[in-house]
Design a protein around this nucleic acid. Sequence first.
RNA 1: GCGCCCUUCGUCUAUCGGUUAGGACACCAGAUUUUCAAUCUGGGAAGACGGGUUCGACUCCCGUAGGGCGUGCCA
Length: 497
Amino acid sequence: MIESASSQARRAPLSAEARPASSTGISMSAPERPVVTRIAPSPTGSMHIGTARTALFNWLYARHTGGTYLLRIEDTDRERSTEANVQVILNGLRWLGLEPDAPPIFQAARADRHRQAVDDLLASGNAYKCWMTVEEVAAAREIARAEGRAIRSPWRDRDPAEAPDAPHVVRFKGPLDDETVVEDLVKGVVRFRNIDLDDLVLLRSDGAPTYNLAVVVDDHDMGITHVIRGDDHLNNTARQSLIYQALGWDLPVFAHLPMIHGEDGGKLSKRHGAQAVGEFEEMGYLPEALRNYLARLGWGHGDDELFSDDQAIAWFDVKDVVKAPARLDWNKLGHVNNHYLRQADDDRLATLVLEAMVRRGAEARADARARLTTVIPLVKEGAKTIKDLDDLCRFALANRPLVLDEKSASVLTEETQGRLGRLAAWLSEESDWSPEPLTARLRGFAQNEGVGLGKFGGALRAVLSGGAPAPDLASALTALGRTESLGRVEDALSRTK
RNA sequence: GCGCCCUUCGUCUAUCGGUUAGGACACCAGAUUUUCAAUCUGGGAAGACGGGUUCGACUCCCGUAGGGCGUGCCA
């Protein structure tokens, strides 16, 4: 299923030729070449919000440096990768506004190239065939763990001639002494003793390349200069560095981003409200708000909290990324989203609210869009999400006659009804049906009646909204329009008469 | 178990040896008041712990504790 998209993958830029090996040790290279970053998600599930932030940082850094930002789909796990998940990734990046600068590369489509690299490693003595069965590996792992050391295969030194007539994997043959130093842009210098690094599988017994091999070959071939990824990969980096070295390739610059945790500091999961990018969209967050919020999670520029993409691009630098993991704070996300909701074009918001209505199965009246366009600017200041906006607009989209909730109905006494009747007449004389004059009308009426607004405000609100959330009275009247407003008052009065 | 990473208000962060440790969200109080919200004003709130180095440490070093990640023929 994934092959269908792989043809276009080949059009993406690949500098297949290995550059001259120059690295004698494992050290951070300082490329003069233009920056090339990539986001490399795996289509084995939904697109995690952490992946979105990694994409954002890669995108920001590429834009900041005038470089290129690429996408590689890591689908080497043929069992779990699905075309549907590839679409989820593509849609998620598009929605976020983080589409790559070139068509995506599909890792599985490059298996031949990966196998070629393994042949080179085998030829140079940097890899070996291992005939351990999964059971043997499991047993060896248990022992190694009990002894507090890394697992080692006996086939590392054994003569292949002794091999049984059975499938084998190919493992990387890492050094047993010395150490590997990773110079990370975020974490600084990180040292690993090579003895602690196990010989990872390069080729599965069915000949399929594994992630750790493919990621090195592809990052190299794609000319990636900066590998910016989650710090759950920091441990892999040492072993991957060894592979780069064995292949005679220059290392890219590494930058490992801290993870995003849930509000309790634990791993972010469904229990924390959301995990997948698509859920954030459905909950009614704006992509520009998510970009802004995510940028502040693990990165900062002084006291700046709300900023545009252009500002983020101008300011962003990997070296300013925070080292500690961050927790997703829904309150702050809501605040940021509110900011962008206020700035957003009302037609766009109307479209989004309409979509939200469809999603919750509401039937929209014919003039819904027109009404939304009128109401949205009057209520959006109080909305943290499109869902909120939907709720806040509901009163305006209700059909007459309204069904009043208990509390609203109880406000309708003979006294208030009498006043509402006079108020309706008073309001109907208003020629300019907009907030300011209506507010003046309301005040004037109160004065005329010799009472405070409180004497009839609640009742008017009740018959206008039926109990649903609604903005201040003048805004509510404006939102509903003269006919609908007076009609609702009339409905309430006639019903009880 | 072993390895690696991390540790400033509840949360996100600023500080890059000398600050009354700043900002934002959240929270609390007050103002406003026609519900909720919004808005305005004010307030409480932090350097995990223990050792060093230094004239001076949130900033540097070591240790402890706590949290996270890795330890897959997953990525």
